[in-house]
């Protein structure tokens, strides 16, 4: 996907969300929709303008603020900042794919939902250390144990949180 296409997809998704909010608002009483409706309409108009600017404005640079009229000095700061970021990025290695990053978060979530909070944390942290961190088994195990124990102590012992047990356990217990 090109950067432009990606930007359009994001804007379109937002447009759909805003229209959804607007549509749902009309199920509610006049008083209940008094504030949400104008906000939804304004958001829809703005996102459409954004879409138009993205696709039809000439000399539009995606990384630059289109509203230079608001701030005269904006660009300079933004550019230097971005340069700084780029420099930093060059130095670093070992990045991963975006989809994997998002996938990892969702995987962790799924694990928590299935096998419960504490076991999921143990497995995820250990797995991450070994597979992605390429740590040695023993070292990874010790780190994970420390992490797990601290979380348990802080949240369960001191804060008295009753941890989620997971769907699988719930199924067995009925």
């Amino acid at each position: 996907m090109s950067k432009k296409l990606e930007n359009n997809v994001v804007a379109l998704v937002l447009l759909v969300i805003f229209i959804g909010f607007l549509y749902l608002s009309f199920n509610y009483s006049a008083k209940a929709r008094l504030v949400p409706v104008p906000i939804a309409i304004a958001s829809i108009i703005l996102i459409i303008i954004q879409l138009l600017i993205q696709n039809f404005a000439k000399n539009f640079d995606l990384s630059v603020d289109p509203s230079q009229l608001f701030k005269a000095t904006q660009n300079e700061a933004a550019v230097t900042n971005q340069e700084a970021r780029k420099n930093v990025q060059v130095k670093k290695q070992g990045g991963g794919k975006e989809t994997t990053g998002i996938g990892l978060v969702l995987l962790f979530l799924a694990m928590i939902l299935l096998i419960g909070m504490m076991p999921a944390i143990f497995l995820f942290v250990l797995g991450y250390f070994i597979i992605l961190g390429q740590e040695k088994w023993l070292k990874a195990l010790i780190y994970t144990a420390i992490c797990e124990a601290s979380i348990y102590f802080l949240f369960v012992t001191i804060l008295n949180v009753h941890m989620y047990e997971g769907l699988i356990l719930k199924m067995f217990l009925g």
Binding site: I121, F124, Y128, G133, I151, F155, V161, M163
Partner: peptide
């Protein structure tokens, strides 16, 4: 590789708590 799993874990536990 050390920070990500640990912080994610603490964040999820925090959100739950």
């Amino acid at each position: 590789t050390v920070l990500i799993p640990v912080i994610l874990a603490v964040c999820f536990v925090g959100a739950y708590s």
